[in-house]
Design a protein around this nucleic acid. Structure first.
Lengths: 220, 220
DNA sequence: TTAAATTTTTAGGTAAATCTAAAAAAAATA
DNA sequence: TATTTTTTTTAGATTTACCTAAAAATTTAA
């Protein structure tokens, strides 16, 4: 890998490919905050270099080489997030932008020693798994809170939105990783969910519930 | 500040300005490993932005703004070096290149928290002073080992060469920061210096002696 | 103090990553 | 299936940081 830009494209394509087979030009453009025309240029280049397969008008898919490169960037990003939270006392809503920069530092030794320094963490401050140095990581089985039924309970183990606004909101509601929750009721009117957390009953909007990931430990 | 390149130019001009009044185009080109014509382009840009004063054919000098920007980069570089050595067990000869990348990460919060995490160190692994967050640092009074006279003694407190080859060589000779040395003899033939260190007598070349910095604690 | 050498700048060009506007292909819809 | 809409690509520019070659200014030396 070389440029920051190429790395950012790869990472974004990798994440988009988690949900769809063929990643579309427009989707990439939106994530990269750039124009589709620019994306076409770049995906041609990444295809030339063997990171993705590209068929005109059909979108792109990752090659093995591309996937490995992307996982390596994701690994760096998440390790740096752990560093920022565990060692420098950043809040979980403050780490994303800095990690976006740190993930591009090119030094295998640095990342391996950082991993060791942090005690080989398995997940980052948002619950996302950290690939090991061979790119392997557990495919975690999450359920979206919104998909749970009344009476279901579980543990908050991740979030699918990393914006500062969202994370600060969760923090205020006490919805942090590791907390136990139970579904009390689902409101027909607005789809909001009533949950029990730390012996209190609170109501969370459908929008919030969509982005909280639960590892279920008991179904109704 | 914006681009890595601009930051690198500023840092190099800052260091060159420590030894001369007017920093010359060719000197910058050599340090930046680029061509004088490219330097002319860049110094015009940096002058436009107010970081340096530039008079055609007369070289450049730093403005207050430029100096502050450069010191900020130097601070980051040296703090990261301390991190790498103190926390990640890098050797002092392994840190330079990685710190060259890390110094460009833009986050004031990051650097302040890193500084605190490291215990507000005053100098980096090569003995260079670390500016505080206001850009202030002690102007250390070093003497080059080569300038000492027979019988003089002192403590190794810095090096003026950061190449891995040089630092590894020092390490092998036991010439590390904090060590006490005394000048036993200076060889007329090749200018090499015989010193006593850790009760052993060793001979170091003139070239090596030039780049070792001593804080004298006893003159002859 | 003129000539030679060195340093620096200008002029014109390249590659990377972007853009806008317009054309082409694919998908959705009537 | 023909038409409209959406998606994607092409064509042609722009900006940043470079480059080479040649011209201009400065410095050194005869």
């Amino acid at each position: 890998m070389q440029s920051f830009t190429e790395e950012n494209y790869l990472k974004i394509i990798y994440h988009l490919a988690e949900n769809t087979n063929n990643v579309q030009t427009n989707a990439i453009a939106e994530q990269m905050q750039t124009k589709p025309a620019s994306v076409t240029d770049m995906i041609k280049k990444l295809a030339d270099k063997g990171f993705i397969d590209y068929v005109k008008y059909q979108g792109v898919t990752m090659t093995e080489k591309g996937r490995n490169a992307a996982i390596d960037i994701v690994r760096k990003h998440r390790l740096w997030e752990v560093f920022l939270v565990d060692k420098l006392n950043f809040k979980w809503d403050e780490v994303h932008d800095v990690a976006e920069e740190l993930e591009h530092i090119k030094s295998t030794a640095l990342i391996e020693r950082l991993d060791e320094f942090l005690g080989f963490p398995k997940s980052d401050p948002h619950g996302d798994p950290i690939p090991d140095k061979n790119g392997r990581f557990a495919k975690t089985q999450f359920t979206k809170l919104i998909e749970l039924k009344i009476g279901d309970s579980g543990t908050i183990t991740g979030v699918s939105q990393h914006s500062s606004a969202f994370l600060k909101h969760l923090e205020k509601l006490g919805l942090t990783l590791g907390k136990q929750i139970q579904i009390n009721d689902v409101t027909d009117f607005d789809g909001s969910v009533e949950i029990v957390i730390s012996d209190k009953q609170i109501n969370i909007s459908r929008e919030v519930a969509k982005h909280i990931l639960i590892s279920s430990n008991g179904k109704n």
